[in-house]
Design a protein around this nucleic acid. Structure first.
Lengths: 256, 256
DNA sequence: TTATGATCATACTCATCGGTAGATATCCTA
DNA sequence: TAGGATATCTACCGATGAGTATGATCATAA
């Protein structure tokens, strides 16, 4: 609630002060394009920290040490800001697809390449916007555009999976569900990465891919060990499954 | 923006009309507890549809065919409503852990049980609140409470993984990363399930578990087929990797 | 030096929405 | 049937924040 700045920012008092971050980088930021990108990046970082609705345009402006109308000079609306953040992030993933397009490699390796870049994009500053932004916050046209891009990526992954199953590099599976599982695990990076940055995006992606490729079930070198079906377990499960999972609803919690 | 009801709701004009859903179900809704649960459920459904910030308390009230002060009669704040939704959902998952606690089965099977209930919970009406709710929208105490519960679940999964590696039912892996990958894939159900309900939550969870257990790499019956390391691919990748992934940023998009 | 367009700040408008005050109706009980 | 407790409504407040009207300032060219 009291997240607004309490006193006026000391910088940006006299217009175009040379000490301001905004002004000092002015030499490098030639033209509107570059400044606009700076606005979008600042917005992405704020959204990442506090979420879309808890970030005001004053916050973004303050981050750049300018005022709100300046932001509006480069961007038409808050919606559009979020939209631009999304596009910037998703473009990284699309580039990964383009790069692997013509490669003469088993599909599983192409998939691995794509997913590694996917994971890195999710750990980037635009990860939040790609994964967590709600399309109800956008205009209809933007929402449609984003859905199309997401669908393109989804179907790209499914296609790679199908090709992998065909060329024998991927274990037979349902491409749709597998794509959901893969994308879900990677998208989720955007949720926890900011809190646990002990690994780089590339390292996380590599670790995830190892997990997905190996699977949980042990890979015996020839002989499958462990993993006995365990008939007792199955019956015990069946007995329990009946009335669980809709029991309590944890009423009357104490936290305020 | 114009999502508010434009004309006053025809029902609930004369107070406690017997035709209102709220009033007609009054016989069944004995006591505050049950009504309170109804409020929480209605909130969960609205949050699920439109997100937390795009749902007003008037919306929730309208859904129940009552007015806003009535909602406040059962709940102290919007924050608390979200908090309650979260608790209701997470309790399903905790129940799953409790149920498998004492089972004398390989850990991979216990993990499977837990994750199946986890997936079902994510496909439930509380899935959105568990997965997508932002803790910036809660009070500090609530946020801390929720973090503790999430951490409990996370560490429960890690523990099952560790046990599985020890008893040989799970392929050796990093428990932390594996838990992240599993939870991520399942949490993501809350994002797409409402748009694609062709499967039940249980079916999705089962499909995911098959994927996770098998892994992408083909499981030869003894002999590994395919999956040649392909040295040419590796070098080709290395060459590309250098300058990719931070290229374009998709400026000047057209959608409004 | 001065005109002009680009850039940015001050100071506002206005709609939305969380939350509340106070009145009212209903129901149960003595 | 009086009276208190319960449950709900009408009508309002106040804060927040997106977006804008207007004017000042700066760089550049004539």
């Amino acid at each position: 609630m009291n997240r607004r700045r309490s006193n006026p920012p000391p910088a940006a008092r006299q217009p175009a002060a040379k000490s301001s971050l905004w002004a000092s980088s002015r030499e490098r930021l030639r033209g509107r394009e570059l400044k606009r990108d700076a606005v979008v990046r600042a917005a992405a970082r704020e959204f990442n920290r506090k979420g879309y609705h808890n970030t005001s345009l004053d916050d973004i402006a303050a981050r750049l040490e300018v005022t709100k109308p300046t932001v509006y000079y480069y961007v038409t609306s808050k919606k559009q800001l979020l939209f631009q953040c999304f596009l910037a992030g998703v473009e990284q993933i699309r580039a990964a697809f383009r790069d692997t397009r013509g490669l003469q490699v088993p599909a599983r390796e192409r998939l691995r390449d794509v997913l590694r870049h996917y994971g890195e994009a999710m750990a980037s500053e635009f990860g939040w916007c790609m994964a967590r932004a709600e399309d109800q916050d956008l205009s209809f046209a933007m929402s449609r555009h984003i859905k199309a891009l997401k669908s393109e990526i989804d179907h790209g992954i499914r296609r790679l999976i199908r090709e992998g199953v065909q060329d024998g590099s991927i274990h037979p599976c349902d491409p749709k569900m597998t794509a959901f599982a893969l994308a879900g695990a990677l998208n989720w990076i955007a949720y926890w990465y900011r809190e646990d940055q002990s690994l780089t995006g590339a390292q996380i992606a590599a670790a995830f891919l190892a997990i997905f490729e190996n699977g949980l079930r042990p890979r015996g070198n020839g002989a499958q060990k462990a993993a006995r079906p365990s008939r007792t377990a199955r019956t015990a499960r069946a007995a329990r499954t009946a009335g669980a999972a809709t029991r309590g609803s944890a009423r009357r919690a104490t936290a305020r």
